[in-house]
Design a binder for these strands. Structure first.
Length: 561
RNA sequence: GUGCCUGUAGCUCAGCCGGAUAGAGUGUUGACUUCCGAAGUCAAAGGUCAUGAGUUCGAAUCUCAUCAGGCACACCA
């Protein structure tokens, strides 16, 4: 990696220049002005320890730099590095030869990671917020896998609480309505809260009557509606290119005795006590604001109790690291789950909880709060309107810490304002060039056939036998493109460290921009076969990286648009 | 009231482990087509980095306070 290379070069030189130096946390960065160089190191942070002015330090270090393959340019306390053509050419060779392994970090410690996200209640269709967790979670999974981790994706189904009863009651009302009975949800505000009033239960009721005898048994109705919701949710996830290794049922957690078991373990830890008829957990001893109820006065478990068992089970299944994506509205929950894991003897630092800010729908330029409105726009609606690719890209585009404005009108336009098209277009354009090298062309005016510049065999050999030396004379034109291609390595590492995927979106936009720019300035299919083959290889390498990055987002890389 | 997130160009956002002239997209204005995809490229204009103080040789970046917006503060899930 270029950055690593220059950091090592500088550190080596630094030790020769100043043998007594203790710490040297020098960072390679991009110069503000590309005229200075391609990479830069600022030595100012060393000034204090060395008691020397930054420019003098830079001059001293410069003497010991090997300058093998690069040039050095000193400005003030900055050491600027300029890549030689050989290094640039070798990068193209590396991309072509390494393929998928080009940006895969070497010498890393792969972890067995459990990634949990979406985990919606099986009581209704996904809303747009779920779409954000689904897109980001699956992209993060792809990223972590790309990096080298062993990732297991999980969806926790909250199928055990009172909301299931509520679902059954709601279905019953819909059934009665279908039978022609004059019933509706209660008028009273408070009582209405015991029902799901969305119209999505109407088709479920219809389907139920087709398959079953009419019944008012809420248990049967609850189970039916729950299964149906799960089925619809999983269908949609599939369509959205989100694939879970396991849908973990909360109900199973209870019936298998795991909830009871983890309760006993907590009891053994001595961190439970009774108060006002309920059993409390001393979570405040582990940094939580207050203690939490574990068993209610009526003897039933709280949601937390099951969740504790669930997280315990994840560790017990051998995962070294747990990553959860939760909505920011659950942030108050973090401390108590971590507290419980500590009490049970697990290292709560191995549980990372990514809190995602919510999605604002923007309709006709106005922000609409994602509430539980009756006629809300579901994720399914959104995908129908905008398409899977644009929806996925858009949902991944912003830092998870920031609220995301999803402008329906803008995304629907599907034109220049939508960055995904810009990126996909770059890929399609690259494919088009590669196609044109081996396909005969027909002049539309004369009907005359123009032979392809290369046969398929020649093209394949050009790629297979690519040698860095072959493009050295022409590589300077592709410099900023190659720098960006190489930057894929840093992007992968940064994204893994920060658990973020918006960085991949940004990278793609930047790479596409560099490619479009290169394309405009450098014609690929030129007379000179050697130049053509070299540029073809650069296009091929670009296409390869675009594809790899798009694959992480699970956005398609079209050959044609 | 307490805790968490956010405040940077008209709009949407990067940059935030302190360092060179604060960047990108979009919008505005203007250029670029004998030729591989113009869904493209190039350029111009556009800034009190919410406000105030502090730390520092140096602050958009760190600290504190204030203001503004969002979210959460259940024996619900």
């Amino acid at each position: 990696m270029y950055k690593q290379f220059f950091e090592n070069e500088t550190k080596t030189a630094l030790k020769q220049a100043y043998p007594d130096i203790q710490e040297c946390n020098l960072r390679v960065e991009k110069p503000k002005n590309s005229d200075f160089g391609d990479f830069a190191i600022n030595v100012s942070p060393l000034a204090r320890e060395l008691k020397t002015a930054p420019p003098a330090i830079a001059q001293n270090i410069e003497k010991y730099l090997s300058k093998d393959g690069y040039e050095v340019n000193l400005i003030g306390g900055f050491i600027n590095f300029k890549l030689g053509r050989k290094m640039l050419a070798e990068t193209i060779e590396e991309i072509i030869k390494q393929g998928q392994n080009f940006a895969k970090p070497k010498n890393i410690k792969p972890e067995k990671i459990n990634l949990e996200y979406v985990s919606a209640n099986p009581t209704g269709p996904f809303h747009i917020g779920h779409g954000r967790w689904a897109a980001m979670g699956s992209a993060l999974a792809n990223l972590l896998k790309f990096y080298g981790h062993d990732v297991y994706q999980e969806f926790y189904i909250n199928d055990a609480g009172s909301q299931i009863q509520k679902l059954g009651n709601s279905l019953l009302i819909r059934l009665k309505q279908l039978k022609g009975e004059n019933v509706d949800f209660p008028q009273d505000e408070l009582e209405r809260k015991n029902y799901y009033q969305g119209e999505y239960l109407i088709p479920v009721a219809e389907k139920f009557l087709k398959e079953n005898e009419y019944t008012e048994d809420v248990k049967i109705l609850s189970d039916y509606a729950k299964k149906e919701m799960e089925r619809l949710q999983q269908e949609l996830l599939n369509k959205f290119r989100v694939h879970f290794d396991k849908f973990y049922s909360e109900l199973d957690l209870h019936t298998s005795g795991k909830v009871e078991n983890s309760y006993k373990k907590l009891e053994e830890s001595g961190k439970l006590y009774e108060k006002e008829g309920a059993i409390w957990f001393k979570s405040s001893e582990y940094g939580d604001d207050e203690d939490r109820v574990i068993k209610k006065a009526d003897g039933s478990n709280t949601y937390l109790t099951a969740d504790i068992a669930y997280h315990k089970d994840k560790f017990d299944r051998g995962f070294e690291r747990l990553i959860n994506i939760w909505g920011a509205d659950h942030h108050g929950y973090v401390a108590r789950v971590k507290a419980s894991l500590e009490a049970l003897g697990y290292n709560s630092e191995k549980l990372e909880i990514l809190l995602g800010q919510l999605v604002n729908l923007v309709i006709n330029g106005e922000q609409t709060r994602m509430g539980k409105r009756k006629n809300m726009i579901t994720l399914d609606d959104l995908i129908e309107e905008v398409g899977v690719d644009a929806t996925r890209f858009w949902m991944c585009m912003r830092d998870i810490n920031n609220t995301l404005d999803f402008d329906i009108e803008l995304a629907k336009k599907s034109t220049d304002e939508n960055p995904v098209f810009y990126v996909q277009y770059a890929h399609a354009r690259a494919c088009s060039i590669l196609r044109n090298t081996i396909n005969d062309k027909i002049n539309t005016e004369t009907g005359e056939k123009i032979a392809a510049p290369l046969t398929e065999d020649e093209f394949n050999k050009t790629i297979e036998n690519f040698k860095a030396e072959s493009i050295i004379d022409d590589v300077e034109n592709a410099k900023s493109l190659i720098l960006k291609l190489e930057d894929f390595k840093s992007t992968i590492i940064l994204s893994e460290q920060t658990r973020s995927v918006y960085t991949i979106c940004r990278y793609l936009s930047e790479l596409a921009s560099e490619f479009h720019s290169y394309y405009t300035k450098n014609r690929v299919l030129v007379e000179d076969k050697n130049i053509m083959k070299g540029r073809l290889s650069i296009v091929y390498a670009t296409k390869s990286i675009l594809k790899q990055a798009l694959d992480i987002l699970a956005v398609t890389a079209p050959e044609k648009m």
